[in-house]
Amino acid sequence: MLVAKNLSKSFKEVNALNNISLAVQEGELYGLLGPNGAGKTTTISILSSLLKPDSGEILYQGKSLYQNLTESKKMIGVVPQEIALYEDLTALENLKFWGTLYGIKGKELQSKTEELLDFMGLSDRKNHKIKTYSGGMKRRINIAAALLHDPKIVFMDEPTVGIDPQSRNLIFEVIQELHSRGLTMIYTTHYMEEAERLCDRIGIIDEGKIIAEGRLEELKKSSKINEEIRVRFTNVQKTDLSNINNHFNGQLLIHENQMVLSTSQANTDLPILIQMCTNANLHLENLQVKSLSLESIFLELTGKSLRD
């Protein structure tokens, strides 16, 4: 469906993309996982013709994106990271406007907008202005606006940022439904859980490079580590934690009063960790040992946390 080869893009000083290649199959839900500033949005902008890459090529169904740009654009749907709707127009007016831009008219436009509003569960609010919507509702209309013209491939750029868990689940359901209908999608996120839960295949992107790619199981298999230990304390003393981290070769992730240690040998590491924490006068509140998550894979690959 989509093949991108050796894409590079720099903005003045920032080298946003560095020789990225990816291929997405028909009907596949591909996750692009990476921290802030990794280059996710830039990748999507380039793939959707918003930005021209400095080098590299993009093929949709074997044809260059720029060969017939107008036709290519009709194949593509984009859900921007920021909500891109007219706040002072109603949901219906917004959808109709965006539909018209794709040449959809009259009855077809009418039925398409109704269908999507229904799909998003917002039919009863269709005549309200977007500015009266909650964050989650805006997000849903933001997605609907990209689906009006029945695109062949849809890019979703962090469609769940800044919304409550319930709305997020609604959006997951929408995406899973679209996936089951066979829509090809590229989904970016910096949430591990989302990528794990939704995506068929995941590319991990950092500093403009794809550093790992594959199915979740493949990624896990290729990783040396297979477990993570989560410890929560009632008190935190920052100064003392660095030597613990050093002991575990920097595989310790510290976030507020929580510690995550990714390891391949939980049985030996666990007692040591607890011992060291006790020595450091940290009071244990909660302890968990889990099998591997994407987050720990990411940590292993990049040496940094996904969030911040």
Binding site: L50, A84, L85, W98, L101
Partner: peptide, 13 residues
Amino acid sequence: EDGTFRRLLVSPI
């Protein structure tokens, strides 16, 4: 500023 410009630009107009 609202990001609708990006959407306009990815549309076929």
